[in-house]
């Protein structure tokens, strides 16, 4: 099936009549997640473009990136790994491991967010205020936007984890766990891109 088809033709008709089900071979929630990730990608791309364009102007003064960012990045990677472990456990039907993986994933994500907040406190203590220089302002803005998306992920994570703890069958929660993991990996990749941009300038 393609946009070159002539849908009014009899030969085409016989083929089309048999078509059923979605265009993409995914559950509908995954399709929505794919589009959501596309939207978020555009959002952060635009922030990055704005960052690069603003950087070209004369008053840009790079800030001293807090070292805690490296630790936070480590937390985020661990979080992603834990989520992935939960997914593979869910596929094997090991309920206890799924619980543990989800719990660790959430905990590391929380640690990441707390670490990001620490980075803000460090910057403030060092006198890098948002209004002082666009480099500072972009740092706060971009980390805040990324953190907000992480928080949104934690809302979905809470729903899936709560269902696990209420004793739902692993098969019922499997999709939720998989989607959380996908989103976690996505936010990790976004963060690595943003982090690279922030420390390189």
């Amino acid at each position: 099936m393609s946009i070159l088809d002539k849908p009014w033709m009899a030969e085409r008709s016989a083929i089309d009549n048999a078509v059923s089900g979605g265009s993409l071979n995914f559950p509908k929630a995954r399709v929505a997640l794919i589009f959501l990730m596309a939207v978020i990608t555009v959002l952060f791309m635009l922030f990055s473009v704005a960052y690069k364009m603003r950087m070209e102007l004369a008053d840009w003064r790079a800030l001293a990136d807090p070292s805690v960012l490296w630790i936070n990045t480590g937390f985020l990677i661990l979080s992603s790994v834990a989520m992935q472990w939960a997914v593979s456990s869910a596929r094997k039907g090991k309920a206890e491991n799924v619980k543990l993986g989800m719990a660790l994933g959430g905990a590391f994500a929380l640690a990441f967010l707390i670490g990001q907040y620490m980075a803000w406190l460090q910057l403030r203590a060092a006198g890098f205020y948002a209004a002082g220089n666009p480099a500072n302002a972009f740092f706060y803005l971009i980390t805040a936007m990324h953190g907000l998306h992480m928080l949104g992920g934690l809302v979905a994570w809470t729903r899936s984890t709560a269902r696990l703890w209420r004793g739902n069958d692993v098969a019922d929660v499997k999709l939720g766990v998989e989607l959380c993991a996908t989103y976690w990996h996505f936010l990790l990749v976004v963060w690595l891109g943003l982090f690279a941009m922030l420390i390189s300038t």
């Binding site: 099936m1 089309d16 979605g22 265009s23 509908k28 929505a32 589009f35 959501l36 939207v39």
Partner: peptide
């Protein structure tokens, strides 16, 4: 809009009835 939009796109792609191809 984003909440609505994700819904519309996913519905168009995944919830068409039997025989309803994109070009129909």
């Amino acid at each position: 809009f984003t909440m609505g939009g994700l819904n519309y796109v996913t519905t168009v792609l995944q919830a068409r009835t039997r025989g309803m191809t994109l070009m129909r």
